[in-house]
């Protein structure tokens, strides 16, 4: 597949299927590349895949989800014995890729199942930006006839909170949209915070839409539990020491990276250190932040 085609395929998934997270879209693109590739050696195929990952990273889309998903995918499909003929290898890779994808699709349901139990009758919940898994969890809890109230931040600059607000109202869940600057004001009224994550890093902290860190610090001060709902394919081998240490490709999209002085640009994401996170709900179970690093070691070492 040529560069243009890869871009088209990838962007098409994101545009048409709202429900699919960026990581999954990237993985599906990679699978398509394997299916269509005419490469003759395994190494060549791997190179092509790596090029494709770079192409996707350079689109105007947050990179965090793509990096972790693709890295895991590459690792998973190449874990088979690769000494057969290329045809067989490709078939095996595709098979494993499909298996991986299936697991990913199931993972969200699993999280929804375990996290919705935490939403009790009469509770009020604060959430940030728009996370698919948080949305589905809330909908699931509402289907179980629980009464609760949701506060959603507008979450500038892309106002994704408004989108979330619309979705929640459509599901019949009582919700209020609040200003990003009203996080401190609203904190004393809520019972707990539920956010998604773009990626989970080795320290057990998360990288998420800018403003999550503010929310976590505020929650810690007011002693409210801060829950993160995330699929395990978002686990990344990255250890940011602080906000400045976060890679630029995470914080700014490719256009800004090329053109603007980064000192003046607004970051897209921020890093929430593990000490502010109470629990992470993943398809591997409910984990404490320190367990994340253990899982990552298991995955990669």
């Amino acid at each position: 597949m040529e560069e243009q085609k890869i871009k088209q395929y990838f962007l098409k998934i994101i545009k048409e299927e709202e429900d699919v997270s960026i990581g999954v879209a990237a993985i599906r693109t990679l699978l398509e590349i394997i299916r269509q590739s005419k490469s003759e050696t395994v190494q060549e195929l791997e190179l092509i895949l790596k090029d494709a990952i770079n192409i996707m990273k350079n689109l105007n889309i947050p990179v965090a989800g793509i990096t972790s998903g693709c890295e895991l995918f590459l690792r998973f499909i190449t874990l088979t014995t690769l000494d057969a003929s290329l045809k067989e290898v490709r078939a095996r890779m595709l098979e494993r890729g499909q298996m991986f994808l299936k697991k990913l699709n199931e993972s969200r349901n699993k999280i929804v199942r375990i996290a919705s139990d935490f939403i009790l009758d009469g509770s009020s919940i604060l959430t940030h930006s728009r996370s698919r898994v948080v949305l589905q969890t809330l909908i699931e809890a509402s289907k179980q006839q629980r009464q609760f109230h949701v506060f959603v931040t507008i979450s500038a600059p892309d106002d994704s909170g408004k989108h979330m607000h619309k979705d929640l109202e459509a599901a019949g869940i009582p919700c209020t949209i609040i200003l990003d600057s009203a996080i401190g004001y609203i904190m004393e009224q809520v019972n707990f915070i539920m956010v998604g994550a773009e990626s989970v890093v080795e320290s057990g902290g998360i990288v998420n839409k800018v403003g999550s860190y503010t929310m976590a610090v505020c929650a810690k001060e007011m002693k409210k539990p801060f829950y993160v709902l995330t699929e395990s394919f978002k686990f990344t081998r990255l250890f940011p020491l602080n906000q400045t240490d976060l890679p630029a490709e995470y914080k700014y999209n490719s256009e800004k990276r090329k053109n603007i002085d980064l000192q003046k640009a607004h970051p897209l994401v921020d890093y929430t250190p593990p000490s502010y996170i109470t629990l992470l709900f993943t398809d591997l179970g409910i984990l404490t932040p320190s367990a994340i690093s253990d899982e990552l070691i298991k995955l990669y070492l």
Binding site: E202, R237, F239, S290, S293, D294, I297, L301
Partner: peptide, 9 residues
């Protein structure tokens, strides 16, 4: 040498 880890690992 394996990775950068939190102390708890």
């Amino acid at each position: 040498e394996l990775a950068i880890l939190p102390c708890t690992s």
